[in-house]
Design a protein around this nucleic acid. Structure first.
Lengths: 231, 231
DNA sequence: TCAAAAGTGTTTGCAATACACCCATGC
DNA sequence: GCATGGGTGTATTGCAAACACTTTTGA
């Protein structure tokens, strides 16, 4: 995806909210970059940049995230436009927010020209953000929580084979609440989404848990139908 | 809300999807304008226009709808940006979609300079739309149906005092399905949203129905909490 | 033998759905 | 007296929520 530097630039930007979840630590994280351009040079902020005339907006979200962080080919979902007149200093810039949910371990972060660093932050320890990025982040969190209740997203975040407790911890991390073990298991198993394997955890200091994997066909089906997962 | 014609214009537009519901006829309608400007001069299309540098986007949605149709001070909710490179002929225009749900009888339509007419169309009889307006409309319908299931919206569309059947017909029109009378009544009454009045219909060719009104406090509360209305 | 997590079962209560049925009124 | 809609009742089924209990394993 190359483009000439002579391409006209829209006064329209994209800001990406990339959530990361680590199954091992049960931590929900957010990807930030350290700005190497004005305004707010040196601040940690959402990875973002300007849309070019020659690209669609979804395409742009992908390019911009890649240029800022090195992450390639990540599908980002659009949230909405933020367009207060003075949200950006000196000139009028309207921005489109996009978000995604990934496994941090899958990506090597390599900051591009406009960033001096790209790092994962614990959601609870994120620095204060410039522009209206905190508002954008807050809305993205709300959307993520709503989405996770309405469809089985986030299953890509677990290892191929996983235990029910790992799955439960994923939901607990995203939703920020505790769930009842028995009820969670019943509900998730009723969906016929999981395939019970004849394999077990090894080397754990307690009874070994059975491993499961996803039934890809049913998973895709549920994604489309938007089954309610009402935790 | 006045502004100079010298204001710079963003290559960013807004398109408004305004739904109308008439309690009497049980019809769900859509507001379209007949374009008096190029491109697509003469076509029926969503009311839309360009955002000015000097206004916030929510503000802009209001001004544009007013200029196109004469409707004043209508709160519109943003859906999302549509930004395919070639969605608009000749130049690059990204658009933000906004939507609202109103009672057609409350408004006098007066087309502005860029429109030769503004009219309500039955949703089922809307003409084919230019640009990507059909896609925008389809998404707005989906959003409306999702919203009406998740919170008690649309109650502004009924007369101050109404019968339960009128309320049921509203839901049926928006959702495009039939509902069971008994179950609908039980569910809606369980919400404590309605105040039972000691007034009845008059001059109807069947047993007169009791009238209800909304409990404004509870209504506002439910709007914020987003109670599930799972029809 | 203790801690930690796996895994199962039970009870309570409400809600969704599908019907069936009687009531009141104008034509 | 019949069509039209108002209004109520009931049986079934399934799930949510709370929580109690047994099992397995390593340290």
């Amino acid at each position: 995806m190359s483009h000439s530097h002579l391409d006209k630039i829209e006064p329209l930007s994209i800001d990406c909210v990339v959530f990361g979840f680590e199954a091992e630590s049960h931590d929900l994280k957010i990807l930030l970059i350290k700005r190497a351009i004005e305004p707010h040079f040196g601040s940690w902020a959402l990875p973002g940049g300007f849309i070019l005339y020659s690209e669609g907006i979804d395409e742009a979200s992908n390019r911009i995230l890649n240029e800022m962080t090195g992450i390639e080919n990540l599908y980002l979902k659009q949230l909405r436009a933020f367009g207060e007149v003075n949200r950006y200093p000196d000139k009028r810039v309207i921005t489109l927010s996009y978000y995604a949910l990934v496994k941090p371990g899958n990506y090597t972060l390599t900051p591009g020209d406009d960033a001096s660093a790209a790092e994962w932050f614990l959601l609870s320890e994120s620095p204060s953000l410039p522009f209206d990025h905190q508002e954008i982040l807050d809305e993205a969190i709300s959307t993520l929580r709503r989405e996770v209740r309405n469809r089985p997203i986030g299953f890509e975040l677990l290892p191929e084979k996983f235990t029910l407790l790992q799955l439960q911890k994923l939901y607990e991390a995203i939703l920020g609440i505790e769930l009842d073990k028995s009820n969670f298991r019943r509900k998730i198993q009723r969906m016929n989404l999981l395939v019970k394997l004849d394999e077990w955890e090894e080397n754990v200091a307690h009874r070994a848990a059975r491993l499961f994997k996803f039934d890809k066909d049913i998973y895709d089906d549920l994604q489309n139908k938007g089954l309610i997962f009402d935790v």
